[in-house]
Amino acid sequence: MIGTRPWLLSAPALVLFLVMLVTPLIMTAVLSFNSFDFYGGIKPTFGLGNYADVLSDSYFYEIFGRTFMIALVTTVIAALIGTPQAYFMLRMHPFWRSVMILVVLGPLLISVVVRTLGWAILLGNNGVINEALRRFDMIERPIKMMYTSGGIVLALVHVMVPFMILAVWAALQRQDPATEKAAESLGAGPFTVFRRIVLPQAMPGILSGSLIVFSLSASAFATPAILGGRRVKVASTTVYDEFLNTLNWPLGAAIAIILLVAVLAIMVAWNRLVEKRFAGVFQ
């Protein structure tokens, strides 16, 4: 009965996606198999040379290792902060809850460049944090935070923690608030209620939030570019340099494709794991 109608309705979007998304991605995949030299530019050859270059060079291993380490640490910290914060927000007075929602979600709508500029001002050797510590004689020499992985993680947590809170919040909203009362009436204290009743019910949210945060952190660009510069490179800033400075597009494309495949592989594996773990308990 329905027939071609849904396809007609989706046709404009579908055509756009085929032309503007699928084609460019295929072209990029093809590009990553081309070769490059500094005089002739991109050569339409077809080989695995770029992948061999990347996978045989410890420099690139270091970059990918750093990229995923930063993403992992960011995810863990975001989960550790975001989960309790989402729970506290659920229990707040409605007025404070709406204030907190603005505080949490507002930054999401402000450009990452602006937020990262704020962190650069805070973290610099003459930045706000170091100046404050020096004024109270807690340090003699500034703590180096700009151009370090730690600084990038701190700013990324700031960017990512709203996504974690949103995911956990959504899971907690599905929870029957009476389960907490039930546990309390059976003799559980606040910490036990959180650990035994709230946390397991928030777990699907934590896991899906972790997935979002991890994949966004692994491919983040603005924050590592501003706070890490040329000194602390990650996969996305390396791709940027290959494309816009070195102009070795095929090599850049190969790095990008490796990043894409790695992120997708991790996402699929994670989903599998989650589905296995929670089959039967949550749909």
Binding site: T179, K181, A182, R196, P200, Q201, M203, V281
Partner: peptide, 8 residues
Amino acid sequence: QTYALFPH
């Protein structure tokens, strides 16, 4: 009223 069983 909602039973409030622990779903997990």
